[in-house]
Computed example of a mutant assay.
Amino acid sequence: MAFQQTLKNKVAFSGIGLHSGKEITLTLRPADAGTGIVFHRIDTTPPVSIEARTENVVSTRLSTTIGKNGAAVSTIEHLMAALFSCGIDNAHVDINGPEVPIMDGSAAPFVEGIKNAGSKSLSKSRKYLVVKKPVTIRNGDKRITVLPSRYYRISFDMHFDHPAISRQFRTMKFDRESFADDFSPARTFGFLAEIEALMAHGLALGASLENAVGIDDNGIVNPEGLRFTDEFVRHKILDSIGDFALAGVHLVGHVKACKSGHELNHKFITELLSRSDCWSLMELTPPENKTASFPISLPEMAWLEAC
């Protein structure tokens, strides 16, 4: 975990865009250390490259959208969560449309594809943003706080005035295996009563029960039911991991979120990055013949050096 990683091989994904309804193909390619995750709109003339960073977020309406030089890519959060959870710090994403395909509504297909492509370590050390002081952002009854912690942990408290969801709470200490098994399969969800209005505004044009959990007045519409009894809050954690990955570094802190979504997630990361007095940017530099692990053990804390 001390060194940055990239893909070992290319991997491609194809599917419908949840909001655009367009058939889209994207290809992940290896990238050099320090590149980060960069999306390339190869269908534009000339092609436009957009770094997956907080400063390039142009919309958070129902998904996270990044844009630059007149081009944009939306619904990036599931792919970003998959890349982060698989330890991929650097990758080129060639995409021939305005939206990442929704696949089955979760991050699991991306996780599986990235794992099959493999990863390789690079010679540059990975950076960690280690929280030293609490940071909180609020919008009405929505709130996100991050506290100092030896781990990257997310706790999420969600509330919906619907009996199929009601109130759900879950906390997770991040690790790759736990995310892949317990969170990446959690699907996006929506209320059928809102679909017509969304479609009238050019949204949810590709939505179906094959790529989302549908909810009506009586409950879950999908004939197969839920993948988890608390699938909704698990998906909110998945979205948060993808949105927080736009910080471009690995967080070490306990994020506590209540009723947050893409908009507040973006505002939170923007606020956190601006509060340099509340964190230290670190990198693991293990002594010769030793391997750094994560979460950071007490002996390894001595290896942390400020960048």
Rank of each mutant, 00 (worst) to 15 (best):
L205E: 15
M158I: 13
L251E: 03
M199L: 07
S184Y: 04
F191W: 08
P163Q: 12
G242R: 01
V252P: 00
S166V: 00
P223H: 14
F174N: 04
D239I: 00
F174Y: 13
V233S: 01
S260I: 00
D216T: 01
A212N: 03
T229F: 10
K236W: 00
F174I: 12
A247L: 11
N218I: 05
D230A: 07
V233K: 00
A197Q: 10
A197I: 07
G261F: 03
F228T: 04
H201W: 04
D230Q: 07
L264E: 06
G214K: 01
A212S: 15
T229K: 10
F232P: 02
P163K: 09
I165T: 04
F228S: 04
V221G: 02
R176Q: 12
A180Q: 09
L226M: 13
N218T: 14
S178M: 10
A193P: 00
L246I: 09
S208G: 13
V221L: 11
V221T: 07
G202F: 11
Q168V: 03
Y152I: 00
L251S: 04
S240A: 09
I215T: 05
P185D: 04
E263G: 12
D161E: 12
R187D: 05
A180E: 08
N218R: 10
R153L: 09
T229Y: 11
F232M: 03
D216A: 01
T229E: 15
R167C: 09
G253P: 02
T171E: 10
G206A: 06
F191D: 07
F232H: 02
G225I: 14
A193D: 15
R167L: 00
C258M: 12
P185T: 04
V233L: 01
